[in-house]
């Protein structure tokens, strides 16, 4: 599991949020499947040299978001509908995460709407 996750210690983003995001991404991509156990706090802490309190804080975000569940004495498990929840969330955020940024950059570059639309079309035909 060593290369499944990557943390950026130089990032402005707090480490516990990176932990939450990395695990979320692994669930989204199916690396951690529904009902399966995810690596323990200790494993992640050890493998990436992150304070266990930080790892736990990240995991607790996922618990609060209904993606993973703690089974007492066993560890953390991916909930049945976790992947679907992430998909829904990412769809909701797609406009903000990708379109808004693209339009800002397009304006900076002086690319008009028609050009962007043709680029989007090209993107879809290029598989």
């Amino acid at each position: 599991m060593v290369m499944i996750m990557q943390f950026n210690f130089n990032s402005a983003e707090p480490l516990y949020l990176q932990v939450a995001e990395q695990i979320e991404n692994a669930i989204f991509l199916g690396s951690f499947a529904a009902k399966e156990q995810i690596p323990s706090t200790t494993e992640i802490s050890r493998d990436f040299q992150i304070n266990p309190a930080t790892v736990l804080k990240g995991m607790n975000i996922l618990v609060a978001n209904g993606l993973i569940q703690k089974k007492r004495g066993l560890g953390m498990f991916v909930l049945e509908d976790a992947q679907e929840k992430i998909r829904t969330k990412r769809k909701d955020q797609f406009f903000q995460d990708y379109i808004v940024k693209m339009v800002v950059e397009a304006r900076n570059l002086g690319l008009d709407q028609a050009t962007i639309q043709s680029l989007v079309e090209r993107g879809f035909t290029q598989e």
Partner: peptide, 30 residues
């Protein structure tokens, strides 16, 4: 640092780490 985290998980205790290689401990110091 991996062994440090492992033994810390097994038996939590206080560590004080003094080092000039700050980027290497940035994630593990609370």
């Amino acid at each position: 640092y991996q062994e440090l985290m492992e033994t810390y998980a097994d038996r939590p205790r206080t560590f004080v780490i003094s080092t000039h290689l700050i980027e290497e401990i940035a994630g593990l110091i609370e």
